[in-house]
């Protein structure tokens, strides 16, 4: 088993309560299935959409966002899976994919001693 981080990118937010309800339900169901498979290490946190960017050299601080809205990371989760293929396969169930978002799957770097 190895660890992976899911980075949730983009995705739009509907304003109608029914749609919000559906989205929440889908996320709950997805997390439930991940947890039942023993894949959730840490559910993670959502991230604010804005922040600061400290630049090299001058160390000047500028305001975010750092990317186009569709690429902004909105949250992360730490999971474990057999390999990156399985981790990516599991990410296919993420509801953000139904709303124009993406899941970036990144292996946590592992050092064999």
């Amino acid at each position: 088993m190895a660890e992976f981080v899911y980075l949730y990118r983009g995705g739009n937010r509907p304003s109608a309560p029914e749609l919000q309800q559906q989205i929440l339900q889908k996320w709950q169901a997805w997390f439930k299935s991940l947890a039942e498979g023993g894949h959730v290490v840490e559910r993670g946190q959502p991230l604010e959409r804005s922040g600061k960017l400290v630049q090299a050299g001058t160390k000047s601080i500028i305001d975010g966002p750092f990317a186009e809205a569709k690429d902004v990371v909105g949250g992360f989760t730490l999971v474990k899976a057999d390999d990156v293929g399985q981790a990516a396969e599991l990410a296919k169930g993420c509801p953000i994919l139904d709303h124009g978002g993406q899941v970036e799957v990144r292996p946590v770097m592992h050092i064999d001693m």
Partner: peptide, 17 residues
């Protein structure tokens, strides 16, 4: 209020209700 609800949704999605 809308903003508070959007944030609730963002947080509950990942952290649970």
């Amino acid at each position: 209020v809308q903003d508070a609800f959007s944030r609730a949704l963002e947080i509950w999605k990942i952290r649970g209700v």
